[in-house]
Amino acid sequence: MQERIQTTQVDAGIAKADVRGAAKEVSMKVLFAVAAALFVLAVLTICLYLLADAVPTIGKIGFVKFFTDERWLIRSERFGIGSLVVGTALSTAGALLVGVPVGLMTATFMSFYCPKWLYRAIKPLTNILAGIPSIVYGFFGLTVIVPLSREMFGGGGMNLFTTSLVLGIMILPTVISISENSLRAVPKSFYEGALALGATKERAIFRTVFPAASSGVLTAIILGMGRAIGETAAITLICGNIDNIPASLAEPFITLASAIASGMGYASTTNLERPALIAVAAVLLIIILLITTVVMLLKKKKY
């Protein structure tokens, strides 16, 4: 474009460029709007498709049965998601128990204690951890943690302990990077003010900076929770996939996501088997939507 302007008369050139520029601006606006519309359409289609498929299926299974039947046996057409929901909740709680303390302490270390050279090494590490495909975590769990857990508890080693540990590691990068960012977003003056008033470093961090960054830290935890709830590939390998409500850390269990993944290979489309899996997916989607909403509400705060 610049070359053209130089070769034509300057005034005319500017006028032309203005017209062209305006046309370009409008066309780009349309392009972006279309892209945004496509994205919204994709989200809406997924939600509508799942719900439109799931609601009649749950009706056919029986609303009460869907939520209260104790067994999840696809082939016997027993579609009780109770053990799936409890399994998801327990493994998520376990993951938070492992991932949140370690993650928050790591974030604190990285933003307040860590020397610069070490920070330059740790920061990329959290990014790498975030980028590892989940099936790799699953394989790691299967070959390293499962035998360890078998040694500790007996049984098959595929249980709540194993899954919580692996999931806890998986949510670390989310917890670390988001809480570190929010800790750094708190104005230095808060921290310095606390020190000036005679607080120790620890007191300043935990009593002043952390409360100021609480919404960011909560967001980190909830996003970690979201990842743990939806995690599929890794969990399917290491949870045992048994429709059992675990009474101890050493018992196998099943989650919403792993039930879908392990059932999909065989589920028949001619009866309720496949539709029931879609209904489970819809339940999972609703849970994740709720969590996303909570995160959006939290985001209204400052840090």
Binding site: G155, G156, G157, G240, N241, I242, N244, P252, A261, S262
Partner: peptide, 8 residues
């Protein structure tokens, strides 16, 4: 007896 694991 669903046992210790039901694998895919």
């Amino acid at each position: 007896n669903t046992g210790v694991a039901q694998l895919a």
